[in-house]
């Protein structure tokens, strides 16, 4: 077969492959693109409380700037994000180290350690709602058994954010630990052998070798958790619905209420697109960080 004929056959094969995969590609693109484009379009519409719709230009976005609830929601979202992420990374690394070194730990114990993140968030929320109930819950019973004062937990405007962060960290720390454990298992043993020969203490080994080598893995875990944490919804919806008052009203909860309880779908779309932009920004920032710490 001549070169020209072979090229023609190859081109034909490529065309056939493209034609065959086109419907699946088009379907996938449509499934991703349509909701995004539709939400962008909705963000330029205004809906009266009776659902009547009209074009509003950038009104929804200018409303964001003067909306006290939006800024409060943003603050709550960031506070929860920072607090939860720090807790989950610190305890996730610690748990991974425990699981890595305790090699004789029975399988059932290892499974128990990682079981919380397999639980649906709604179940976790319900469970903690009962445990933390100030009147009937076990948490205050235990505190009082040790002579400590009871807490209002989720019912206190001061403590609600730390409490929600604790619930989320209880659930997702094992997930971070699993990622970090994978990273620990892939570290080259030769570096540790060299450190041992040089007489480095366990703390120095952790500080100078393990942690720097683990940073790319930790940043990957941070990226994965950031996306979820900035979209925090289910546990808050189950436990506090944004309360007491507005103390745990994240942007996601606020957007949900504006859209589905007050029927202002246009403003809710603008809120959610702003949140999406924040999530993208955070992911890009962490991605850059990952590039910087890669080895």
């Amino acid at each position: 077969m001549s070169d020209t004929a072979a090229t023609l056959t190859q081109d034909r094969q490529k065309l056939e492959m493209a034609a065959l995969s086109a419907p699946a590609v088009a379907f996938t693109v449509a499934m991703i693109a349509f909701p995004v484009v539709y939400t962008i379009w909705l963000g330029f519409q205004t809906f009266s409380s009776t659902g009547k719709q009209s074009f509003a230009g950038l009104t929804n976005y200018s409303k964001l700037i003067s909306d006290v609830e939006f800024w409060h929601g943003l603050w709550v979202t960031i506070a929860l994000f920072v607090l939860s992420l720090v807790l989950q990374l610190v305890f996730g690394v610690w748990l991974a180290l425990v699981l890595f070194h305790a090699k004789r730990l029975p399988g059932i114990v290892r499974s128990l350690f990682i079981s919380p993140f397999m639980m649906p968030p709604v179940v976790a929320g319900m469970m903690w709602l009962v445990i933390l109930d100030p009147s009937l819950g076990a948490a205050n019973y235990i505190l009082q058994a040790f002579g400590l004062p009871p807490s209002d937990w989720l019912a206190s405007p001061t403590w609600v954010i730390p409490t929600v962060a604790l619930i989320d960290s209880w659930q997702w720390t094992p997930y971070v630990a699993l990622i970090v454990l994978g990273g620990l298992q892939s570290l080259p043993p030769s570096v540790y052998e060299a450190a041992q020969i040089d007489g480095a203490s366990p703390f120095k080994t952790f500080q100078r070798i393990t942690l720097p080598l683990l940073l790319p893995t930790i940043v990957t875990a941070a990226i994965l958790r950031s996306v979820d944490l900035l979209r925090f919804f289910d546990i808050i919806y189950i436990t506090t619905q944004g309360g007491p008052g507005n103390a745990s009203n994240t942007l996601n909860i606020y957007g949900f209420r504006v859209g589905f309880e007050f029927f202002d779908i246009g403003y809710a779309s603008a809120l959610m697109l702003t949140l999406t932009a924040i999530v993208f920004g955070a992911v890009m920032a962490f991605n850059r960080l990952r590039g910087a710490v890669a080895w």
Binding site: P134, S135, L136, P150, D152, A155, T240, P244
Partner: peptide, 16 residues
């Protein structure tokens, strides 16, 4: 009222 009453709706009230 009970501590944490700001999170009370019908479920919690009936249970209490």
């Amino acid at each position: 009222g009970p501590p944490g009453v700001v999170n009370y709706s019908f479920q919690q009230i009936s249970a209490l």
